[in-house]
Design a binder for these strands. Sequence first.
DNA 1: TTTGCTTTTTGACTTTTGTCAAAGACTTTG
DNA 2: CAAAGTCTTTGACAAAAGTCAAAAAGCAAA
Lengths: 187, 187
Amino acid sequence: MNVISFLQQTIHLGPETEADLARIIVREQFPKNHILVRPGQYYRRLMFVEEGLIREHYLSMSGKDTTYRFHTEGNFVTADESFIDNQPSQYTFETLEDSVICSISHADFETLLRQHPEFEQLHILVMHQLIREMKERITALQFQTATERYESLLQSQPSIFQRVSLGHIASFLGISQETLSRIRSKR
Amino acid sequence: MNVISFLQQTIHLGPETEADLARIIVREQFPKNHILVRPGQYYRRLMFVEEGLIREHYLSMSGKDTTYRFHTEGNFVTADESFIDNQPSQYTFETLEDSVICSISHADFETLLRQHPEFEQLHILVMHQLIREMKERITALQFQTATERYESLLQSQPSIFQRVSLGHIASFLGISQETLSRIRSKR
DNA sequence: TTTGCTTTTTGACTTTTGTCAAAGACTTTG
DNA sequence: CAAAGTCTTTGACAAAAGTCAAAAAGCAAA
C-alpha cells in the first residue's frame, strides 16, 4: 500500500494536490536492522511505512533496551518528541525488515495543511486513532496480567509473532523474555 | 482559573468570539462524589475543570475498580470513546471534590472550529499534550518498578496525595493498595 | 466525645515475575 | 555442511507484588 493510495481512502486528492505531494514526499528503501533515528537526534519528519516494520525502543540508563512499539506497513510514524515538540528524540527507530518508507518534512507538512485544508481532517483522524490505541495500551499495562496482554496481542496482531523476535515482544509486553517463553509453553 | 482566561493564555479572543463562547459554554457545579458519566453512556461534551478534581476509572468484569487517571482544575477532559468515536463511554467519570465544570457539546465544538479557525491551533496543542503524557505513562508502566512510578508521581503531582485516597492512587499506579502502603512506609 | 464508617497499615502467606546460568534450537555464513 | 552466532527454552532461586484478614488510625456525624 503506497501513501497516495492510502490517502485516497480517506480524502479526495485533486491532480494539483497530488502533484504537490509528489514534490515533497521522499521515498526511501532501507535494509533490515537499519537505524532511522537515534536518541538525541532531531528528526522532524512524518514517516509512512509502505513496506516493512519499524521498532521504536527506549534505552534505559542501565542499558536495557525496551520496545515501545512496532510500526507496520500502512501506518504513519513520527519521532514524537522531535516532530511535535521540536526536541531531540528519546527513542530509537530501527527497521526489523527491509523497508520502504515515505516521509515529508515538518515544514512541508505545515505548508500542506495550510494549502490543502482537507488534510486537517486526516491529521485529526490519525491523532484520534493514536489516542485510542494509547488508552487501550495504558489500561492493558495497568490492570491486565502478562498472560492477558499476551493473549490480546495474539488476537490483535498475530502476524507480529512471525516477524519479530520474542525478546522484543516480551519487552513490548512489559515482561522478561523468560516469562514470555513460560507463558507460551503453557498452552 | 476559568475557561475564558485559560483560553486567552493561548489564543486571542475577539469580543465576538467571546460572545459566541458565552452562548455555548455551560457552567455547572457538582458536589463531591458526583457521577458525571457512567459506562455505557454517550457523553459527547468537551469538559474543562475550573475547580475540583475528576477521577476517571474503569470497572473490570470481576468488578474491580481501577483509576485510569485524575483530571484536575485547568484541564480539558472528554469521555474519549464518546467524544472522539461517538461510542458509549467505557469509563466512569466522578468528582472527588466539589467541582465546577464548564462544557460544550460536540456539535458546538465543531461549529466553533469552523467559525473561529484559531481554535484549531489550540485543539491540536491539547491533543499533542495528551499524546506526550500518554507516552510517558506507557513507558513508566512498561519498564519502571512500582516504587519508581510512585516517586515520579510524588515529583510531578505531589498535591494529589493530599486530595485523593491512597486506594485510588494505588490503582492508578497499577499496584495494590497494600503494596503502595508498604512502599510509603520504607522512607 | 462517643459511635460508626472509611481508609490505611501490618502480618502471614501465595503467586507472579525477574535474574542468572546453561542447554537446546534455529540461522546464517564462510 | 560445519562453525559461529543468535534466539529461545529450561531450571533453580530470589525478589516483587498480590491476597486475605485483622488491627490501627483517621474522619464525620450524632
